[in-house]
Design a protein around this nucleic acid. Sequence first.
DNA 1: ATTGTGAAGGTTTTT
DNA 2: CCTTCACAAT
Length: 710
Amino acid sequence: MQADQILVQLNEQQREAVTSSGSNVIVVAGAGSGKTRVLVHRIAWLIAVEQIPPQNIFAVTFTNKAAKEMSSRVSEILGYESKGMWIGTFHGIAHRFLRLHWSDAGLDQNFQILDADDQLRQIKKIIKESSFDESRYPPKEITWFINSQKDLGLRPDKSKGKKGFEHYLGLYAAYEKLCRQNNLVDFGELLLRFYETLKNNEPLLEHYQNRFENILVDEFQDTNEIQYQIIKLITGSEGRAFIVGDDDQSIYRWRGANPDSMPRFRNDFLEPRSIKLEQNYRSTKNILNAANSIISNNNGRLEKNLWTDEESGPLIKLHQNFDEYEEASNIIETIESKSGKLKLSDIAILYRSNAQSRVIEEALIRRAIPYRVYGGFRFFDRAEVKDALAYLRLTQNVADDIAFERACSVPPKGIGAQTMNKIKNYARDEGLCLYAASDQLIQSKTLANRATKSLVAFLETLNETKNLVSNQTLEKQFEIVIEQSKLIPYLKEKKTEQSATKIDNILELINAAHGFRQPFEDDDLSPMQSFLAHAALESGENQASEWQESVQLMTMHSAKGLEFPLVFIAGMEDGLFPHTRSQLDPGGLEEERRLCYVAVTRSMRELYISYSSQRMLHGSMISSQPSRFLYEIPNELIDDLSTEGLKPMPKRQRANGGDGLLGKLVEHSSFGEGVVIAVEGDGDNKRVQVNFQSAGLKWLVLGYANLKIM
DNA sequence: ATTGTGAAGGTTTTT
DNA sequence: CCTTCACAAT
């Protein structure tokens, strides 16, 4: 591999970045300006030209998709798979570190990762045990609080619980205790523990600082505090950090991403060299102009001027629809009209929230168009898959209490809540895992006869499974465990509508095992352990279905980093996008606008934007106005396909009363730019949502009434 | 102990 | 609208 081969396809700025020899580099890279390409070529440059051993490279991104893409492209350019590099998501890398240094990190060797669902469950449990009222301590809010503290790097003792949140601290502490006792690590903990372990262990830190002389970070604008500190720590004074990002594409502020990460880098890191990538290679002029025009409404951006050499291309098509069903069929109609000219996989349908996919999916199914949904339900988050995983986990570690409890209850095997409580109490008192506690309770015959019998049978099955599984291939192991779990006969028996799908999902696990390639860095783990570790951190999208020829459906968030010749943006309505929830805090709207910028710049050539006049939301119809972002696109770039055209931007005023209500006003509270109103009616206490256009207001009205919706 | 029912509650984005 | 939870009936 020669230097010029790596540089041949790069423009001047890209080359400058790739070959940079200074200490720290910040690349401000606009959408479609070859960000990933620069990173990939930089890594290849380091290995092939600078002769840096791959194990001295630490490259981190935010999504599994991006990480995979990066490592496969590096291999492609080098012509071989370079081993020893640490390349992955922050969470993936932290996890790997903790698996290697579990002892230094103060963990048991077989610690388990708590996913979002499990975490919420545990927190609910704590709230209950502390006999707090769930309404005063909403589990989701507590979870959010805990996670945000961890993102900031704060333990309960350091955490201050801002005004109104002081009483959450106790729960945070209790949750931590529970996690420690049960050897559980949640997503936030992965990062925090990684950081703390390095920070507090001089020799370890020195080792990794020396080892990783080259640190590369993608999507730097989305780093949160703890991630930023991790990068700073590992870089140390000797390392070189090469970071790439675009402040205009920062869309994870709600997850703790610090919008100042980019400017901050310039102050915190030694002699940073700044390189701008401003030429967009992806989109037509029209698309880019629209995107630039939208984002120009944000304040405090880094100076950047994105331009393109491409032709103007087609106008942006705008489609008004009556409701989301019409919207979906219009999209599908357009797709059909393009058939033959485009591959289906060149088409993406983007939306703000996962819930929007359902109606579109139904329409696609009706027309027999293959599609694929990213995100949303994660394969490994499905209940039946987690059930099966619980059995798999138990074969690796009987002390896995979460798995133990889960496996006890599904399929039902005569061990109910009563028995489980006794086991748990005993386990807690004696400091045992549930498995050991069960065993002792059996010996001491303290449980009811029937329960004891069931428990004996269950433990026997577990041990038998463990034996059967040893020395088998991964695939075979899965088959055995699934067989032993009797989950499939149980589901067959139930004969509910979803049974067949659930069974398919469980069987899909076997396929996943078949296709699983253990990463070389996991060679100290058994294949099963490796698989399970990855299952917790990945959505399982690569297994769920093949790429094949299909239309791609995903949220705008998931679309970041991807590009498509034809893009649909659906549900372009105020309240949905920008989302109502985002309008409550000041930075929220700007973040939504960046998301809009991301969505628009996914398109290489054709862009269809649609909105509906009304839409079903949580069971009732609401009417809605076109998104304010539509008015930020210059008119001459838009080809309006609807008969009426885009109405002038509706006035947005504060609510000031209840004129025009069809019922008696009983309650009324401000809700961002709308207002929440409860209306009393004499009918069947049905929840309705009406838009008060008649009052000239953009109001969202929620209430209880027997109103009829026109 | 398990299963079925109905009421209540919550509604964004992800590792 | 969908999910979750509590409680009653088996």
